[in-house]
């Protein structure tokens, strides 16, 4: 009898102990980040935000306002721009009008986001269209149905096909951790993706469309996988937790995990991103508090958040 593909993969890459992972990440939350190191961390987090709107009700107007926020999060000389705006494929050309050439990149979810339940041909066509319209980055979802059915080869082949369809654009592979459920599954799916990705491509936790989002636990499993893959092959894969990271405090805890797991080379927005929108204003609010010594009212900051 042949062992199921997932068991064979786990034998190769090793299992994860849930209690141990959660104990490890609890230590990140006790790190005390103060003064200059806090300011540095907050600004770093701003540069890592993929400012996102993924709603049925998105319009060119809404996207324009999102782009403006991405380019200028808050008045002041020292507030950096965010990394990217993240929109549906039909909004890519609208976003392009505002941010193309500005340094803020355009990311687009594709491949029948968020379920991925469409024929591969359709999903690939969607990717190609988004790239043609100007998407610098594509956020794809993996085929969770195939993964859970044990067809790991199919999952990996589909990712490889999307890599090809991306052309020059960066790819982010969404594992949808809440649907994979266990840390073993998350580790296995990370390796499936990383083995067909190019340096600088991402693995990403979630769509933000299910109840479970990025946690320090699944972030850690994926960071550990990235580290192991890098030490084995030399390929640097990037990471993007998405959904559920709403406060600056949480963002700093995720960055502590990066610092203590992957080190300095991953502390920049080509190697780490936050998929979030309401996070941005909390980062700005904390930065303003560090600068002025007083908390500002929420309405002090222009509001363009929706989505995650």
């Amino acid at each position: 009898m042949t062992r199921p593909a997932l068991r064979r993969l786990l034998d190769e890459i090793g299992p994860v102990d849930a209690t141990g992972i959660e104990e490890r990440v609890a230590k990140y939350t006790t790190r005390s980040i103060k003064k200059q190191s806090k300011v540095f961390g907050l600004k770093l987090a701003v540069t890592m935000v993929d400012l996102t709107t993924l709603e049925g009700k998105d319009t060119p107007g809404k996207v324009a306002s999102l782009c403006r926020k991405a380019l200028c999060p808050h008045p002041g000389d020292d507030i950096p721009r965010v990394a990217a705006v993240c929109v549906y494929p039909s909004m890519v050309k609208h976003a392009a009008r505002h941010v193309k050439g500005s340094g803020v990149r355009i990311a687009s979810v594709a491949t029948a986001f968020p379920s991925g339940q469409a024929p591969l041909k359709t999903r690939l066509a969607e990717v190609r269209q988004a790239v043609a319209d100007g998407a610098d980055e594509i956020d794809m979802v993996i085929n969770r149905g195939a993964f859970l059915a044990g067809e790991l080869g199919l999952v990996q082949d589909e990712i490889a096909a999307v890599v090809e369809a991306c052309g020059e654009s960066t790819l982010k592979v969404i594992l949808e951790t809440s649907e994979l459920e266990t840390y073993d599954h998350i580790r296995a799916a990370s390796f499936l993706a990383m083995r067909v990705l190019r340096p600088g491509d991402f693995i990403k936790t979630s769509t933000g469309k299910t109840s479970g989002n990025a946690t320090l636990g699944n972030n850690q499993v994926m960071l550990d996988a990235i580290r192991d893959h890098f030490l084995d092959t030399g390929t640097e894969i990037a990471m993007k937790p998405a959904g559920g990271i709403k406060s600056a405090k949480q963002a700093l805890q995720f960055l502590v995990a990066v610092k203590e797991t992957l080190g300095d080379a991953w502390l920049n927005n080509t190697r780490y991103r936050f998929g979030a929108s309401s996070l941005l204003n909390d980062l700005l609010r904390q930065l303003e508090t560090q600068r002025s010594g007083a908390y500002q009212a929420p309405y002090t900051f222009s509001d363009d958040s929706s989505g995650y």
Binding site: S32, I33, G234, E260, G263
Partner: peptide, 16 residues
């Protein structure tokens, strides 16, 4: 090449 991670001083924690 022997690969290793760099745990440097890019982001130091201030005394707390």
């Amino acid at each position: 090449k022997v690969r290793e991670l760099l745990f440097g001083d890019l982001w130091e924690y201030d005394p707390a």
